[in-house]
Simulated scan of single mutants.
Amino acid sequence: MKKSVENLLKRKPTGGKRKAYRGRRKYEIDRYPIETVLGKEERIVKRVRGGNIKVACKSVEYANVVDSKEGKVVKAKILRVVRNIADKDYDRRGVITKGAVIETEAGTARVVSRPGQDGVVNAVKI
């Protein structure tokens, strides 16, 4: 997934190409997104900038569902992905991202966490 460095490969006002004055730096690294799907629990641990760790979900089985009326959190099994407004392709493939609507044992809920970066699925009952 080679990507040009931002603002290094702009064109001249005449339309001519300009050479980048330097290459990519380590902190400008780009990765493929981890698309979380429904299945047996599987997580990936990534080392990120500053020596920190980011946990990503490759596949999930359960979600932490908050019922705002009762003020309780329940760990519920995800039955299916109802819809994902982030991308039509994600909707078709059943990828879980922030904002996706999922059907759980506790009822229909909207995902409020980022499973591909947080490593957990948190949702609010709707």
Score class of each variant (00 low, 15 high):
Met1Phe: 07
Lys2Trp: 09
Lys3Ala: 12
Lys3Asp: 12
Lys3Ser: 11
Val5Gln: 05
Asn7Gly: 04
Asn7Trp: 06
Leu9Ile: 13
Lys10Gln: 15
Arg11Ser: 10
Arg11His: 07
Lys12Arg: 14
Lys12Gly: 02
Pro13Ala: 08
Gly16Phe: 03
Lys17Met: 15
Arg18Gly: 12
Lys19Gln: 12
Lys19Met: 13
Ala20Pro: 04
Tyr21Glu: 13
Tyr21Ala: 06
Arg22Ser: 03
Arg22Cys: 09
Arg24Gln: 06
Arg24Ser: 07
Tyr27Asn: 11
Glu28Gly: 00
Ile29Ser: 09
Pro33Asn: 04
Ile34Met: 10
Glu35Thr: 10
Glu35Gln: 09
Thr36Trp: 02
Thr36Arg: 01
Val37Glu: 01
Leu38Lys: 00
Leu38Cys: 01
Leu38Arg: 04
Lys40Gly: 02
Lys40Asp: 07
Glu41Val: 09
Glu42Asp: 14
Arg43Ala: 09
Val45Thr: 15
Val45Trp: 14
Lys46Gln: 15
Arg47His: 15
Val48Asn: 11
Val48Glu: 11
Val48Trp: 06
Gly50Tyr: 08
Gly51Lys: 09
Gly51Met: 05
Gly51Pro: 02
Ile53Phe: 14
Val55Asp: 05
Ala56Arg: 07
Lys58Arg: 14
Lys58Ala: 10
Ser59Arg: 05
Ser59Cys: 05
Val60Leu: 13
Tyr62Lys: 15
Tyr62Ile: 13
Ala63Cys: 07
Ala63Lys: 01
Asn64Gly: 03
Val65Phe: 04
Val65Arg: 00
Val65Cys: 00
Val65Gly: 00
Val66Met: 13
Lys69Asp: 12
Glu70Gln: 10
Gly71Trp: 11
Val74Tyr: 10
Lys75Arg: 15
Ala76Lys: 02
Lys77Ala: 08
Lys77Tyr: 08
Leu79Arg: 13
Val82His: 03
Val82Ser: 00
Asn84Cys: 05
Asn84Met: 06
Asn84Thr: 07
Ile85Asn: 14
Ile85Lys: 15
Ile85Thr: 15
Ala86Ser: 14
Ala86His: 06
Asp87Tyr: 06
Asp87Pro: 00
Lys88Gly: 12
Tyr90Met: 14
Asp91Gln: 09
Val95Trp: 00
Val95Gln: 04
Ile96Phe: 03
Gly99Arg: 06
Ala100Cys: 13
Ile102Glu: 01
Thr104Asn: 00
Ala106Leu: 05
Thr108Ser: 03
Thr108Cys: 03
Ala109Gln: 00
Ala109His: 02
Pro115Asn: 06
Gln117Glu: 12
Gln117Phe: 12
Asp118His: 03
Asp118Gln: 04
Gly119Trp: 03
Gly119Lys: 01
Val120Phe: 08
Ala123Met: 01
Val124Lys: 10
Val124Arg: 06
Val124Phe: 12
Lys125Asp: 02
Ile126Phe: 11
